[in-house]
């Protein structure tokens, strides 16, 4: 064949339709924004109920995580995500969906190595890199006496 892999990659790029960003980006903005607005609403309700600012923020996160876990179980979260893309990925609800979906899916491989282990397939890296970054930050703070 007289076509090189590079030329073919160019051909393939041309033949492949791109994502319709004029649809996906506004959808992500809208749904992501609404989830955050809901978070703000919950936060205000909890603060009105007498919680401190930090507590209200924590309880808000827990509420959103619970709601997303439930929607995942009901097979609804992926339907919203199909429209919203990053709008349902980036908020804490996406983290929850990332925990629940593999746990549910791999239950058939057992409760320990299926559900238990696969629960962290998507969320695990987030925790690993988040915590490592925070520990590095803590050491820097300590060494340079920035606290």
């Amino acid at each position: 064949m007289n076509i090189t892999p590079n030329e073919y990659n160019e051909m393939a790029k041309k033949a492949s339709p791109g994502t319709k960003s004029y649809k996906t980006i506004p959808a992500a903005f809208l749904v992501g924004g609404l989830i955050c607005t809901l978070g703000q609403l919950l936060n205000n309700v909890y603060m009105d109920a007498g919680m401190s600012k930090d507590t209200a923020s924590t309880v808000t996160s827990i509420t959103l995580i619970f709601a997303a876990a439930l929607l995942t179980g009901l097979n609804l979260y992926n339907k919203i995500a199909k429209f919203a893309g990053a709008g349902t990925l980036v908020p804490i609800t996406g983290f929850s969906n990332g925990v629940v979906s593999p746990a549910l899916e791999f239950k058939s491989e057992g409760y320990v190595l299926g559900l238990g282990a696969k629960l962290f397939v998507i969320a695990g890296p987030v925790i690993v890199y988040g915590i490592t970054a925070s520990a590095v930050y803590g050491v820097i703070l300590y060494l340079f006496k920035l606290y």
């Binding site: 791109g18 992926n78 995500a81 996406g94 979906s101 593999p102 899916e105």
Partner: peptide, 15 residues
Amino acid sequence: RQFRLPLEYGGQRPP
């Protein structure tokens, strides 16, 4: 399940 992601995972498929 084998090649991509759990069925319940929210994501978009490219065109």
